[in-house]
């Protein structure tokens, strides 16, 4: 391992299960408190859904785990965010290395204005991998994992922008998988897609949880119910309830949760 990779968070060689934890996490944007003190443990190799009305802080909370909030002006964090016990906000952490372990899929499909091949290969190229054969294998493998290979195998050099929205989002997932993360964060990955594409992505998420820990923010409660093992309900920057999905949707402990999932507000 080179010196640059010293701040490595997770050692790939040990097939450890990766647990996300927060301890007393508060997030501020300047003076506004977006997250008001959350303690939470997210289980490995499960799908955990974050639900809640707009502005409840679920996306902010999700973005803590790959430090994407760092780019927001006025962002400040109190408390600790840990992955396998290691605080990912301490000084020594190599953020680039962290993000290779914690991949992210965004709300709107955001392929690069490059070819399909280069989109998937990008995460490897930035690690300095340029071996053509290895890249080709990796690209094929990643595209197969998201069931996109058969649709695009003859068009790898065509621009990714020309793909349909659903294909673009699967491409973005393939791009994330190519880097071999162990945790995947998804920020409303199907909200910009049609029902058919949504179904494909959901199916994909179901398959991916064998190998990855997945945290997904969703506005769609049916979706949370369909694909997640655990569900967390956020409201006004607080974690109101967090339980097995079945339990939370059929027999919630808190009145607020029940009001939300039955559609009485939000």
């Amino acid at each position: 391992m080179s010196k640059k990779e010293k701040g490595i968070v997770i050692d790939k060689s040990i097939k450890r299960k990766h647990k996300l934890e927060t301890k007393g996490v508060k997030v501020f944007y300047d003076d506004f408190m977006a997250i008001k003190g959350i303690d939470m443990t997210i289980k490995a190799n499960k799908v955990t859904a974050f639900i809640g009305p707009s502005g409840c802080g679920k996306s902010t909370f999700l973005r803590l785990f790959n430090r994407m909030n760092d780019y927001v002006d006025g962002f400040r964090l109190e408390g600790e965010v840990r992955i396998d016990g290691e605080n990912i906000y301490k000084k020594k952490i190599n953020v680039e290395q962290l993000r290779k372990q914690v991949g992210m899929v965004f709300q709107k499909p955001n392929p690069f204005p490059k070819s399909i091949f280069e989109n998937v290969a990008y995460g490897l190229r930035i690690q300095g991998i340029n071996d053509k054969r290895y890249l080709s294998e990796k690209v094929e493998d990643s595209l197969k994992q998201v069931a996109l290979w058969d649709e695009v195998k003859d068009d790898l050099n065509k621009s990714a922008i020309a793909l349909s929205g659903g294909q673009q989002q699967r491409l973005c997932i393939a791009r994330t998988l190519a880097v071999e993360p162990s945790i995947i964060l998804m920020d409303e990955p199907t909200s910009a897609l049609d029902p058919l594409s949504t179904a494909k992505i959901e199916e994909l998420i179901y398959e991916l949880k064998e190998k990855y820990s997945i945290v997904i923010v969703t506005h769609n409660m049916q979706q949370a119910g369909r694909i997640s093992d655990y569900t967390a309900f956020f409201y006004l920057g607080e974690l109101i309830e967090y339980d097995r999905t079945k339990k939370l949707f059929t027999n919630p402990e808190k009145q607020q949760t029940e009001n939300y999932i039955t559609g009485r507000f939000g």
């Binding site: 994407m68 993000r99 955001n110 930035i126 973005c172 880097v179």
Partner: peptide, 21 residues
């Protein structure tokens, strides 16, 4: 678009890699 920066950073790219690539 900001989404391009987000995608690049989220894959572990450094600032210079994002700028240059």
């Amino acid at each position: 678009p900001k989404s391009i920066r987000d995608a690049s950073y989220a894959l572990g790219a450094s600032k210079w890699q994002t700028v240059s690539m």
